[in-house]
């Protein structure tokens, strides 16, 4: 009989979800400190209510707590993301290509920051954390279709922003 109050169950939940909760809040608000606070708050609340939250619901519980913490309270700041180094040897690429890449990344950054918070969070949870639409829907407490809509709109606006349409 699994119970969130069991140390083992709790630490499993922590190691599986803490990073994604952190990312989720960061994608929305672009503030690392606030993202740390949100993860901390979410897992403390989970521990305090461990007897009431069944393990299957613990995941959406921590996302909800983290999300509610800043609901309508703070304004999103600039989200700063890093880019993984390409695997090929950089020197083999022409300076023009590298410059183009840099420009493209700058445009993508700007475009991402202009997206509504919920679209940005959905897009990045999928692209960076590899979350399926169904998983994101569970975190956000909305339908899969709503997430697909966000994703579609996010892709559309990103392309338009980047290409200046």
């Amino acid at each position: 009989m699994d119970n969130v109050c069991e140390d083992e169950v709790f630490s499993n939940l922590f190691s599986t979800h803490s990073k994604t909760v952190y990312n989720y809040i960061y994608y929305k608000f672009g503030n690392e400190e606030k993202a740390y606070d949100a993860v901390q708050e979410a897992f403390i609340k989970l521990w305090e209510n461990c007897a009431k939250v069944i393990p299957e619901k613990a995941k959406s519980y921590v996302y909800t707590v983290a999300n509610n913490l800043y609901l309508n309270v703070i304004k999103a700041e600039k989200v700063r993301l890093k880019y993984a180094k390409p695997t090929y040897e950089i020197s083999h690429e022409s300076p023009e290509f590298l410059l183009e890449e840099k420009e493209y990344q700058a445009k993508l950054d700007a475009a991402l920051n202009r997206l509504p918070e919920s679209q940005r969070a959905t897009f990045l949870l999928n692209r960076i954390d590899g979350k399926k639409y169904a998983e994101i829907a569970e975190m956000e407490g909305v339908s899969v279709k709503a997430i697909e809509k966000r994703m579609h709109l996010a892709l559309k606006s990103l392309r338009e922003e980047i290409h200046g349409i």
Binding site: K19, E32, R80, I128
Partner: peptide, 16 residues
């Protein structure tokens, strides 16, 4: 391009 994006580092021990 979005596939090579990375989130900021997360120090889980700090939260733990």
């Amino acid at each position: 391009a979005s596939a090579s994006l990375k989130a900021p580092d997360f120090d889980s021990s700090r939260v733990l």
